[in-house]
Design a protein around this nucleic acid. Structure first.
Lengths: 189, 189, 189, 189
DNA sequence: AATGAATGAGCGTTCATTCAT
DNA sequence: GATGAATGAACGCTCATTCAT
């Protein structure tokens, strides 16, 4: 191995892919992505053997960063509701701060180029966050519905809420609160 | 005179487009769509001047059929909650019955090839359904949040619920109920 | 034969073809030509079996009208030079009056879709005009060069002159005269 | 680094384009041109971003080579007429030697795909030749007509003459002389 | 005769990927 | 490892022509 793969270039490629997939969908061409990353068309393929691979890596990378955000320590002494509100707020903030990532993710989620395996791997990344939420809901919700609330509702409801905020940025805090209230009340036993 | 445009072919094209867009995304090629519809590649373009046009018509067509489903008469003497449950059930049933349409819609919604105008036109189609829901929530929810519940939450929450059912078809009724309960409780004042 | 072919439609098609070929070259589509003529795409083919046929008829038609213009009677008592100047002026005037026809002709002349046979047929149409010019040059030019002057030079030099006038319409008369002088002096023995 | 653009391939593409445009007009397909050049269809577009670009480059290239031919040194001590005859002969010889280029040029000149800018750029290439001719005509022609003779007549008259020779190759020298005589006598004051 | 929908080959161009440099 | 020229299949779309109406 003459030269090691450059982490810098890999990141630039993923960043460029994120931007372009967000804007153009998964049809964004590898040539454009390479150009936006400041590397040559061929180089893209030394970092990612195929475009599908790039897309899957991108998906995983974004989800991983997202999961990391959710992992920051939580005040253990706060009430379940307060702790859940912190989770909720982090979900919302991440989506608003990383709007490009979120848009890219939205495209990737509906694409059949992102494999089931990638999706499952990412699911696992949120285990800790999920456990946290589980604790919050333990005394609040009907036990048989907790899984549904967490796996199905929580993230997507946050997504919907982010969309609503994106449409009316001035009402940011009100919408965030309205979304949370809906979830909290809706999940009560 | 001449041969009239065939409603049948137009429908076949939209049906084929729906299938392929659901499976492959908006990148599905016009050639494949034409072939699946049993017409020649050129014929597609006598029915839809451009691919974008086809995609937009498809979007509108699906939404229109969906809106029609929602328009069926409601038992006016039932309670607000019961009537809302009927709305909710129709949303869910439609999504489950028309899973291809729903998947196509999901692709179309994230594509920038579907114009704002098309989206707005479709939004209008649901006015009646929205009014119906508004009445149901009138005495149940905080007035300032009703718009948020209807425009932002309701349809997307139904979508999430459908996804959940699609993943676990055996729990169909339980999940449908769980989704509704979440919405109803969540929207209480 | 249920209905006779309509002269009117044939003319409208040729007129439309002339316009469009002048503007777009022989690549102008039959659909556009039919539309511009106010008839349907199919009708074009009942008047002209193929596009090549239409193009050849158009070529012949324009040349024929042109030849007709040249056939108007000449004052037989005028001098050779004066009579030739009349010929020359008619060439120039025709080109300026019928600039669309001339542009179409220019495209047709360089196209291999206009057959040798069409070209030869048109050549024959100008026999009379050519004879006229021959008489004018009889005592003015070297006999062995007269054919060259008429068949090769005269029409093309007129064409060049028309181009020059088209570029500077204000100098119309001066350029017309300059072109004629060049021909007259140039063809002197 | 990478593989450098090959001058050879570019030339082969222009050569192939020249051949096919000469034969089929500007409608000659890029696929045929690429095949004739011995490269793949895609390769054409790494050398010329669009077909229009190829056509314009071809136009400029042919004109440039032509201009170069005209630039060869002239015997300054020869008479004006003799020097002009050299110019004339070079025009004729070029056209006869490069009959494919000439035919391609003829197609390109009537095509609206060759831009005004390309035409103007090429016009400039002949400045030197034009100056040369200007000197030859200085004491021979009416000053106010010199521009007309050079810009409008000379090249096109040569073109006509070449056509005549192409039709009767055996009379090559006689026709060349006849054309020159016409020009020389015709441009006398 | 007139219409225009139907056809499929062909168009100019883009694409993911390979490989000579 | 990095580059970008090379590739040919595929793309969205147009075309001359045919033929059901």
């Amino acid at each position: 191995m003459a030269r090691p793969l450059s982490e810098e270039k890999r990141d630039a490629l993923l960043k460029a892919a994120s931007d372009l997939v967000a804007r153009l969908g998964t049809g964004a061409s590898t040539a454009k992505i390479a150009k936006a990353a400041g590397v040559s068309e061929g180089t893209l393929f030394t970092y990612f053997p195929t475009k599908d691979d790039l897309l899957n890596q991108l998906f995983i990378e974004i989800e991983a960063r997202f999961a990391l955000t959710m992992l920051a320590p939580y005040p253990l002494d706060a009430s379940a509701k307060d702790r859940l509100f912190i989770v909720w707020s982090r979900l919302i903030e991440w989506g608003l701060d990383r709007s490009t990532s979120r848009k890219a993710l939205r495209q990737l989620k509906v694409s059949d180029r992102v494999t089931l395996e990638s999706r499952q791997r990412c699911h696992a990344l949120f285990r800790e966050a999920r456990l946290m939420v589980e604790q919050c809901l333990a005394e609040h919700s009907a036990p048989e519905r907790v899984a549904f609330y967490i796996d199905t509702i929580l993230f997507d409801l946050a997504d919907i809420t982010i969309n609503a905020i994106a449409a009316k940025p001035k009402e940011r805090d009100a919408i965030r609160q309205a979304g949370f209230d809906l979830f909290w009340k809706g999940t009560a036993a």
